[in-house]
């Protein structure tokens, strides 16, 4: 096992009743990289994410985090580990009874011993980082639009300055300008903080702009995990269709032009 792997999934099998979602899935995430995960609808992208972060118990297989088997960690080690990652759920999953600022402060309150005032300031900073204006801080999640909710959820995921960031469709529902800013932010954070980012996305522009590698899930496993340029030459039919279709080609052209 190589030292620069932060997450390593080996032979993962997940199933719901008789429905097998993953069978013999392997995935490697390198430290400090931005990894995109793509796959058709229902191919189990979110399920994979939930397995890695421990919300789902796999039927078989092993997940190593920092080279240590997750299932063998003690409760306190697991808590320390969970403290180091931020998760952005697909639908935001903000606490509806708390304002945006209180949502961002919720993990800080639990884990940090800093003054309330500084917590509020840091929360405002994270809210600004996620691209929300100051007026959003005092609002309840129900008063926000879908895109704003997503950014508020990102602010909460960033609350504890995580080492690993899991993003489930972060740019879905954002307008192209906001999505572009989001890409820049993730790039910036991963470069300056050495953040490892694992993101599920269908946004071909995002895949182009910030992902170091892209993992493709099909046939219940990861069929390829490589930089985008290599992927476009991959012979698999689904990958060809995904990146070779009109949308994929457009994004590729644009990406090549901007570099």
């Amino acid at each position: 096992m190589s030292a620069d792997l932060i997450i390593e999934v080996r032979g993962l099998r997940t199933q719901f009743g008789t429905h097998v979602v993953h069978d013999g899935l392997d995935l490697e995430v390198r430290r400090g990289e931005v990894l995109g995960i793509v796959g058709g609808s229902g191919s189990g992208k979110s399920v994979l994410l939930n397995s890695i972060i421990g919300l789902l118990q796999p039927a078989a297989g092993e997940i190593f985090i920092d080279g240590r088997l997750r299932s063998r960690l003690t409760d306190s080690e697991r808590a320390a580990l969970e403290r180091r990652w931020g998760v952005l759920f697909q639908y935001g999953a903000l606490f509806s009874a708390l304002s945006v600022r209180e949502n961002v402060m919720a993990p800080m309150r639990e884990h940090l011993e800093i003054s309330h005032a500084l917590m509020a300031e840091l929360a405002d900073l994270k809210i600004a980082l996620a691209g929300l204006g100051p007026e959003a801080a005092g609002k309840l999640p129900s008063e926000l639009s879908g895109g704003m909710r997503k950014r508020a959820a990102l602010a909460r995921a960033l609350a504890l300055d995580p080492d690993i960031l899991f993003l489930d469709e972060p740019t879905a529902g954002l307008d192209p300008i906001a999505a572009g800013k989001f890409d820049t932010l993730i790039r910036e954070l991963s470069q300056t903080l050495g953040l490892t980012v694992v993101m599920i996305t269908h946004d071909l522009d995002t895949l182009h702009a910030i992902c170091d590698r892209v993992a493709v899930i099909a046939e219940k496993r990861v069929i390829a995990n490589a930089p985008l340029d290599e992927l476009t030459r991959h012979p698999h039919v689904w990958i060809q269709e995904y990146f070779g279709g009109p949308r994929g080609r457009a994004a590729l052209r644009q990406g090549a032009g901007s570099r």
Binding site: A120, L125, P134, A136, A137, G138, T192, L193
Partner: peptide, 21 residues
Amino acid sequence: PTAERLITEMRARQIDGGPEP
């Protein structure tokens, strides 16, 4: 490697969310 960039970046992004109600 990153401190100057981060500090400048954070200063640029800083907002004041106003007092809590």
